[in-house]
């Protein structure tokens, strides 16, 4: 992963953090995510990514996101020090 890379949420590993930059996909997926507060500019932390659905924390809430949907959330991955 290069510095300041934009990647699908699913690429992040457990413990990684990032900022949502874009949501790609149909209107259904976009509005569903927006309604849940998953919008560009929000900080997101991956709490678990074990090959199935991904577990994230955003806005103080936790969500389980299916892999299909997690592919559509593009994040700006923060480099871990």
């Amino acid at each position: 992963m290069s510095l300041n890379s934009k990647v699908p949420l699913i690429m992040l590993r457990e413990g990684d953090e990032g900022v949502v930059v874009d949501i790609i996909g149909g209107r259904g997926a976009v509005s569903k995510l927006l309604a849940l507060g998953i919008v560009p500019g929000k900080k997101v932390k991956v709490l678990g990514n074990r090959g199935g659905a991904i577990l994230i924390s955003i806005n103080g809430s936790k969500f389980v996101v299916g892999r299909g949907l997690a592919m559509k959330v593009i994040v700006h991955a923060k480099q871990k020090n």
């Binding site: 389980v64 299909g68 949907l69």
Partner: peptide, 9 residues
């Protein structure tokens, strides 16, 4: 078709 879902904990 791919399943898309999200649930709040």
């Amino acid at each position: 078709g791919e399943a898309e879902y999200i649930i709040e904990l």
